[in-house]
């Protein structure tokens, strides 16, 4: 640290103060969640002041419920992005997993088995993605584009375009029910989201596998030289991603009480956007689960806010796109200021 005697009579103290300041600033700027947290806070404050409907527990829990399945899928997606890949099949996997469970329920299978079948279907798609990307070394973009088409095609093939309805009440409870927590009614999907966020964050931050995942995105060669089985890590990450996505799809199906073959079309973009807004780098090696959760929350708060404000429907898509770009630009600014 260079001294600066000109500006201060008590150079040591001043320098210390500056140094602390700088360290504090760096710690702040290096947090991947920083920008999205500030934006979320700003949007929340603005909406609370402008409308008397935003800051009600009813509305906030509704918002949380409706981004929970996007967030859960985005946790998986962010792991894939951290290892330097991309998964485009997530929207279709959400629909397929929900549909398989719904068909299971309709044919009289018990709720547990129907749910397991849905999750397994999702996991299977992820496993196939992982094999093709990890073992055969195809680019994940093309592989998951293919599996997206296959998964979506199966939903149409199985249903002929008709949604599957009349699902059991006990299954719908997973999506529509609430957990009583003191004065609040916490929606069950939100409970799932928080629990899974904690688990995935633990996996990434405190386990060897987590370290492999981050290293894989930064330097594949380092792991290769260390004799790590990269293929297995990749297969595992893709399988985890699709399994989490499948769970998200199940929760969405339970919430709506209907499994439509057209469900989740285009959701892959929302899911990837949530991950990236939350600070996950598309170049790999960087990302945090809590940031992703905030990213998903930010997107849904935007949508909710535009409706509550009575923003013209035809302009909403442009407004959301603009806000996403602003979030990304601000995050870019943060990265430039963070000393590696």
């Amino acid at each position: 640290m260079s001294t600066n005697n000109v500006l201060s009579h008590t150079p040591e103290k001043k320098n210390n103060w500056l140094a602390y300041h700088r360290i504090g600033w760096q710690m702040l700027v290096r947090r991947q969640e920083l920008i999205v947290f500030i934006l979320l806070l700003a949007a929340g404050t603005f909406l609370s002041l402008r409308t008397d409907t935003f800051l009600t527990s009813n509305n906030l829990f509704n918002v949380a419920r409706s981004f929970s399945w996007i967030a859960i899928a985005a946790f998986g997606e962010s792991m894939v992005i951290i290892i330097g890949g991309i998964d485009l099949s997530v929207g279709a996997v959400m629909a397929l997993a929900g549909l398989i469970t719904a068909i299971g329920l309709q044919s009289g299978v018990s709720v547990i088995w129907a749910i397991l079948a849905g999750l397994l279907t999702g996991g299977l798609v992820g496993w196939a993605n992982g094999i093709l990307v990890g073992r055969i070394r195809l680019p994940s973009f093309i592989v998951t584009l293919g599996t997206m088409s296959i998964a979506r095609g199966i939903t149409f093939g199985l249903t002929g375009g008709w949604p599957v309805r009349s699902l059991l009440q006990s299954f719908r409870y997973l999506g529509q029910g609430d957990l009583i927590l003191g004065p609040w009614l916490l929606p069950i999907p939100v409970v799932f989201m928080l629990g899974i966020a904690a688990l995935v964050a633990f996996l990434l931050d405190y386990t060897v596998l987590g370290r492999y995942i981050y290293t894989l995105g930064n330097s594949e060669r380092a792991l290769l030289f260390a004799g790590i089985n990269l293929t297995r890590v990749k297969i595992l990450v893709f399988t985890l991603c699709s399994s989490l996505t499948a769970l998200g799809g199940l929760l969405m199906t339970a919430r709506l009480g209907v499994a439509a073959p057209t469900a989740g079309i285009g959701y892959e973009l929302d899911i990837i956007a949530a991950a990236v807004i939350g600070g996950t780098s598309l170049f790999g090696g960087e990302g945090s689960i809590w940031g992703v959760l905030l990213g998903a929350a930010f997107m849904q708060v935007l949508r909710n806010g535009l409706v509550l404000l009575g923003f013209p429907a035809y302009w909403q898509s442009a407004a959301i796109g603009g806000m996403i770009l602003i979030a990304l630009l601000l995050d870019f600014w943060r990265r430039q200021r963070a000393v590696p």
């Binding site: 509704n62 209907v258 409706v307 009575g310």
Partner: peptide, 22 residues
């Protein structure tokens, strides 16, 4: 107000409930 669903059941449900809130 006029709200959009993007031809999506899930988005339709959300838009409907949000409008009822507003």
């Amino acid at each position: 107000t006029t709200v959009i669903t993007n031809d999506d059941i899930n988005m339709g449900v959300q838009a409907l409930e949000e409008t009822m809130q507003a």
